[in-house]
């Protein structure tokens, strides 16, 4: 069930250049049912910014009623959010959307988790849950440059982790897709910029593959039709809503 609640900020810190980790306390944590779901945050009580910000859930702890978000300061809303301090409250709507299906891989199999930039965070909870299940997990995390890298240590603790940077200032120079080619795996989960998702889908036509999409959203609950994409059944008028049908889709389900 989706809840709307004033959630308390437990901690906030900058973990990479303009990238913030925010830990929140909220009852709605009990409603989270899969890694890769998101929350919709109202940063201001006033009219500017007016709309909520969709931010993915990076990890959660049901016992402590806490969840972690990682976001990039990239506009007025996220700038305001980055100025907020522990003890302050944010209006949070969630959990929203459908996350990554953990039951698509079995214990002993290998899952490849590929993240690009600010698409990396939701893969962390996924990684935690797959490890818990006994799945072998390999991560490929792509960033623009060294100062943008975050959570390398956290992912490395769960399994083998490759870091790539576009400019070669850290890890391997190049794209995540270069690394994917060198690995064997049973299932691939990915989240990141659309061109990256497109390249991964194209390069892995025979693999079990799940992609988390990003799109500008209005309501976040499926009512406003802002974040639609074409579904693959070719009738031309059929569609999926990224917010409520996704954001995670099986490869081939939608046209990206």
């Amino acid at each position: 069930m989706i809840k709307k609640e004033l959630s308390k900020i437990i901690s906030q810190k900058e973990i990479a250049a303009d990238v913030y980790e925010l830990i929140m306390e909220a009852d709605l944590v009990s409603e989270i049912n899969a890694p890769g779901q998101f929350v919709h945050i109202r940063v201001s009580n006033g009219f500017d910014p007016l709309l909520r910000r969709p931010i993915s859930i990076c990890s959660f702890d049901k016992k402590a009623k806490q969840f972690t978000m990682i976001y990039r300061k990239d506009g007025r809303g996220t700038s305001l959010m980055s100025d907020m301090e522990p003890g302050m409250y944010l209006d949070v709507l969630g959990p929203l959307g459908n996350g990554f299906p953990v039951d698509e891989v079995n214990a002993g199999e290998t899952a490849l988790l590929v993240g690009g930039g600010i698409g990396v965070p939701p893969l962390y909870e996924l990684s935690n849950q797959l490890i818990e299940k006994g799945v072998n997990v390999i991560h490929i995390l792509g960033f623009q440059t060294k100062s943008a890298v975050f959570y390398e240590k956290e992912f490395t603790e769960n399994g083998m982790t490759f870091i790539t940077t576009d400019d070669g200032s850290y890890g391997r120079k190049g794209f995540v897709t270069d690394v994917i080619k060198e690995l064997s795996f049973d299932c691939l989960y990915t989240c990141g910029p659309t061109p990256m998702l497109r390249a991964i889908e194209k390069g892995n036509p025979d693999k079990k593959l799940f992609l988390s999409l990003e799109e500008r959203m209005g309501c976040g609950i499926g009512a406003c039709y802002a974040c639609v994409c074409h579904s693959s059944d070719a009738s031309g008028s059929s569609y999926k809503k990224v917010c409520s049908d996704g954001p995670v889709f099986r490869a081939g389900e939608v046209i990206i």
Binding site: F47, L51, E215
Partner: peptide, 21 residues
């Protein structure tokens, strides 16, 4: 049935939003 316009379909403005669904 109508699919509507390509995305992006919304953009935020001061105290408002633009939509082109």
């Amino acid at each position: 049935p109508r699919f509507g316009n390509p995305t992006p379909r919304v953009a935020e403005t001061s105290a408002g939003m633009l939509n082109a669904i």
